[in-house]
Nucleic acid binder design. Sequence first.
DNA 1: CATGAATGAGCGTTCATTCAT
DNA 2: TATGAATGAACGCTCATTCAT
Lengths: 214, 214, 214, 214
Amino acid sequence: MNNTDKKFRRRAEARPDEMLDAALAVFSEKGFAATKVDEVARRAGVSKGTVYLYFPSKEALMEGIVRRAVAPIAERAVPDMAQFEGDPRLPIAMLVHTLQNLLSDPNNLAVPRLILREIMNFPAIAELYRREVLGKVIPALTALVARGVASGQLRKVDPEMTVRSIVGPIVAHVALSEVFGMRPEEGLALDRLVENHLDILFHGISPAGGEETP
Amino acid sequence: MNNTDKKFRRRAEARPDEMLDAALAVFSEKGFAATKVDEVARRAGVSKGTVYLYFPSKEALMEGIVRRAVAPIAERAVPDMAQFEGDPRLPIAMLVHTLQNLLSDPNNLAVPRLILREIMNFPAIAELYRREVLGKVIPALTALVARGVASGQLRKVDPEMTVRSIVGPIVAHVALSEVFGMRPEEGLALDRLVENHLDILFHGISPAGGEETP
Amino acid sequence: MNNTDKKFRRRAEARPDEMLDAALAVFSEKGFAATKVDEVARRAGVSKGTVYLYFPSKEALMEGIVRRAVAPIAERAVPDMAQFEGDPRLPIAMLVHTLQNLLSDPNNLAVPRLILREIMNFPAIAELYRREVLGKVIPALTALVARGVASGQLRKVDPEMTVRSIVGPIVAHVALSEVFGMRPEEGLALDRLVENHLDILFHGISPAGGEETP
Amino acid sequence: MNNTDKKFRRRAEARPDEMLDAALAVFSEKGFAATKVDEVARRAGVSKGTVYLYFPSKEALMEGIVRRAVAPIAERAVPDMAQFEGDPRLPIAMLVHTLQNLLSDPNNLAVPRLILREIMNFPAIAELYRREVLGKVIPALTALVARGVASGQLRKVDPEMTVRSIVGPIVAHVALSEVFGMRPEEGLALDRLVENHLDILFHGISPAGGEETP
DNA sequence: CATGAATGAGCGTTCATTCAT
DNA sequence: TATGAATGAACGCTCATTCAT
């Protein structure tokens, strides 16, 4: 009798997590509405009733997926970016590269893609995402840009709007690829995108005669 | 019995159009899945059976909405941008301002928003949109940028990726506003976004010591 | 194509009534909880969906049954008993005989039996029954007895409690028969019950000139 | 660890009894169908599995409740009433007063009320109750009345039917109060009912020397 | 053309019961 | 004995689609 034996796994505490994994997989394949709870259960290797032992409803599975994915972001101390003292382009580049790394792994792409797909039917999730992720990242970025402008390290741009210029190209690139299948011949080519994006962005936000990209 | 009489208008050939209007309205309010054909019919002032007289299924309503909205774009001669001979920043700015105008009118926003919301459940629509809209606009933009680079009117940027830098900030701005309700205090503030966006974009893609924004 | 043709009956207005008939039959057989809506539908000769076309829920069927049965009682002018001028024993006997007639027909017995069976799970129905039936019949009877006592045509009894003595034996008899299957050898024998009941009610069981209550 | 310790009390043989208490409480509150075994277990302070250790099914809890309540009645020597030699009105009055006392205590009311509520869904319980309670009390009463008639101590009434006149008013009074909430202003007022009931039962409602039944 | 009554497959959810520990 | 995680059959309700009128 080994560890993968059903009998043994019965009381594993990972059970809810396994169900979220299964739910994420099926939701991603067929969409929330077209997914049957039965299928989530089967994929998780349990019976339908067991799903309801851990999650009160099909919607709760959705929320669970998002909450689990959002938690580390929410916990991570995003705002220390604002206290950064040097060239603001450094943390901006770092953030962009972090995003790049995150999005490179298809596993990490699954949740945002699912959120993108279903969010408008789940106001509660939109609110959660807005509060825990966007509500932290965007103000931090805005403050960073504002400080750069104030210190003269950046041109006199509109900080709030500039945030859109920082993340927008990445969003557009991923959406084009994931939603419409419009991707470069080599594949997702995130590195190419990021390189070009930062090149334009930094030439665009740097003072006249600006130095090299960090 | 005069011309405005319901009986009379009922026989107008505009009937399918009225149904698409109704469907767009309800789909936008509640989402496709949560919308009952009954409600579309009621909103259009006809009976449920009549809807099926013109559209073979609920999905067909969705497709009809998109097809109708996409038609003018598909017909419009997008590619003449590519033949533009002068400063490529001019047609880029024009495109951005056209987008700005389009998105300023909430009516025009309805269809893209609905597409954004439902597209992942409708591969056929994604394909249609990709083929008729993105497949025309993006290559045209790419070509435009490529020509600018070739002629030295733009810096040596990656044309394909630069397209993401052109439309991305607008997409991000609208998505932030429409999906997450994150909008500036004044409202959508598209003009502020566009001004800042073009400012950064043109400083970023212009050759060193680049001139003013056109 | 005759009147019983399914095609013809399609638009009959009797549809809801037929469903209530079917529901009454099945509820009576198996009880509310054990009855499947599917079975009600089948018994009514329609599909499950059709039931929900006329009644919003399974409970609504229950309420519909009771409401329909109660309506004529509620409408019938019960209170003219109170204005009766002569010997109050006459309307009392009449009421008892009316009850006897009602209960003789098994069809009439079905609804009260169902009510008796399910009432404690349907507070709304209890309230309806209390208001529309008991709330009219019992005060009327009480008033009748009170008037009889006042006029000296009845002994000095407690009118409110005496009402229990008027209807109680009948209730007990029917309950014994319907609920526990305890019935006389001849069958329900309502006439024997009523005759004996009125005899005792009007004279008591003590021999003429009977002594004090022990 | 002392005697009141949960661990200790848990092993008491009273365990099944505690479960019946819990079941009675919950069944009374919500009805049998709406009660979850889980809740009975929680109320009894044990786990769901333990309930099934003592009772093979949810229905068995119901039967257990009734059987336990019925046992003392069944054991008590009811029939000695029949051997009573004096005025039959005496044991009749005694029985009524016994009933009155029983019903005065809400605790005693719980089981009959539950039986009343659920009996039609439990033929086995109806049968048990019929055999052990009604099947003993009613024949005893019938015999008592029959003897009274035979001895001339009662008028020539129908013994079998007269039993309904003895218990019916009490049943009706309690049902009116418990099922429909129709009770006198002072409360249940069982004493008032019993006094009036016996008065009428023994004397009727007609004035002394009252005329024929109308 | 238009209606709307009728259909019935489909799915989320509940809960009594089981059984490995 | 006692536990409580797991099961899965069962059922109420919805709604896209059809079709007789």
